[in-house]
Amino acid sequence: MAYSEKVVDHYSAPRNVGSFMKNDDAVGTGLVGAPECGDVMKLQIKVENDQIVDAKFKTFGCGSAIASSSLATEWVKGKTLDEAMTIRNTEIVEELSLPPVKIHCSVLAEDAIKAAIADYKSRSAASAD
């Protein structure tokens, strides 16, 4: 199967691998799993004034999941929370040319972004109280 160069690149040299301190109020953590295969992914965002300034991830999963999350962290950086919410897994599929069997891996990345944003929002809401 001819994978696009981009996927191979994101897979062999994934960007932004790692973690932020979880209880930092500026950090939102999304932890998601793919029921199709049992892979898990953690994606974290660091937010300043509603804007995502940095992102990190750690994925225990297949190559496509790693490439998807690597790409997702690149994309969210510099975006506002609302903008980041609009990222769709189909865009990841397109960018990385993922085959049908690997669609769920991109879904994992989209879910992780959403989960991270939700986590950040609920934390900031809590600390605002």
Partner: peptide, 10 residues
């Protein structure tokens, strides 16, 4: 069954 897959993967 959902949980089984994660354990299986481990």
């Amino acid at each position: 069954l959902n949980a089984e897959r994660y354990l299986h993967r481990l």
